[in-house]
């Protein structure tokens, strides 16, 4: 990648103005994947000096600054308290501490990467994104949007909810991308199931969630049925890591396992 100019943003307004000046201007988050882009960039805009790297909590939500590193997420006590700490658990499995000191939550979201291990847990926790100009929108709506957004992601907001969580990353080696990742959360009578690295990006398994929601506790038949629906109704693909059929089988096994675990903890 060729970069002609590097600019440290002085404010969010400054960053917004510059990124909208040209399609050859781009915001740099962690920057680890940017190197592999073939884009010619007139200007790279760095948000490092804007204080967007804090994890804070209010009475109702946890707010993660967009430049917060994955290592900070991994070690955050605030995030450990949400849904069994599935977000720190997912972050902690991404390569090594060195890379996690560089990668940011903002970059993981804006890139809409298929291999992302964070998108599934964030979807299951009802994450909202706060953009400088566009304001708040759900992560789900952002991921579903076909067009790209030329705005500055300021923070990620996770509502505080009482609930449990399950996360599983299936991979071949410790440093590899996932063959499939599975995130499940359970509040009182609501389940959320997300499947990522299919190899396409994470999505919610809506049909499976629909048959579970409204129940505080599940029997074995309901769990089997929901796991089967999650595997059947979700689209999987082939790549060099695994076949579509293998991913489908993994989805069935681990959704069932996760639901059993959460159901057992709830009863």
């Amino acid at each position: 990648m060729n970069i002609k100019h590097f600019h440290k943003a002085a404010s969010l307004d400054d960053a917004y103005e510059r990124v909208n000046k040209s399609r050859h201007h781009a915001i740099i988050a962690g920057g680890a994947w940017m190197k592999f882009s073939s884009r010619e960039l007139e200007e790279v805009i760095d948000l490092s000096d804007l204080g967007l790297d804090a994890i804070e909590e209010t009475k109702n939500e946890v707010i993660i600054g967009s430049m917060t590193t994955l290592h900070a997420i991994e070690t955050s006590e605030i995030l450990q308290a949400l849904f069994n700490g599935i977000l720190p658990e997912a972050a902690a499995q991404i390569v090594g501490v060195g890379l996690r000191n560089v990668l940011t939550i903002g970059g993981s979201i804006i890139g809409k990467y298929g291999f992302s291990d964070l998108l599934g847990p964030l979807l299951c926790m009802d994450a909202q994104l706060n953009f400088h100009q566009a304001g708040k929108m759900s992560l789900e709506a952002f991921l579903d949007a076909k067009s790209s957004i030329n705005d500055v992601l300021v923070s990620v907001h996770i509502p505080k909810q009482n609930g449990k969580g399950y996360f599983k990353k299936v991979r071949k080696t410790a440093l590899d991308f996932a063959v499939l990742n599975i995130a499940i959360t359970k509040t009182t009578d609501q389940f959320k199931i997300a499947l990522g690295s299919r190899p396409a990006r994470a999505i919610l398994a809506m049909d499976a969630m629909a048959v579970l929601n409204g129940y505080e506790s599940l029997d074995n038949k309901q769990i089997e049925n929901a796991a089967k629906i999650a595997a059947d109704a979700t689209t999987f693909g082939d790549n060099h890591r695994a076949s579509k059929a293998y991913r489908k089988e993994l989805a069935y096994v681990y959704v069932r396992r996760g639901l059993f675990m959460l159901n057992k903890e709830a009863s």
Partner: peptide, 19 residues
């Protein structure tokens, strides 16, 4: 290629010097 930036290990191969 690991080096320390502000005493934290980071990979120098994908870290821009400009930062």
């Amino acid at each position: 290629c690991t080096i320390l930036v502000d005493n934290k290990p980071v990979p120098s191969c994908t870290t821009l010097t400009a930062r």
